[in-house]
Amino acid sequence: MSDIKSRVVSIIIDKLGVEEAEVTTEASFTNDLGADSLDTVELIMEFEKEFNIAIPDDQAENIQTVGQAVSYIEENAK
């Protein structure tokens, strides 16, 4: 697992209270991991903090799965 992916996964485990095995690349925050809209906003904020990036709202809307989060961060993290 890449460093970015493992950091993303641990944030998700912490905020959503899910097991590591559930946090697959394809897993959707809302459909598979039990997040509601506020949880999703909080996750995005945690990613911003952890990776020191700013994710604009229109980009954030496209981040709905673990894999999408990891790719976005890989492309944008300094």
Binding site: L38, V41, E42, M45, E48, K49
Partner: peptide
């Protein structure tokens, strides 16, 4: 401002 979405509720 980086307020948590759960702050108000």
């Amino acid at each position: 401002p980086k307020f948590n979405p759960f702050f108000i509720p």
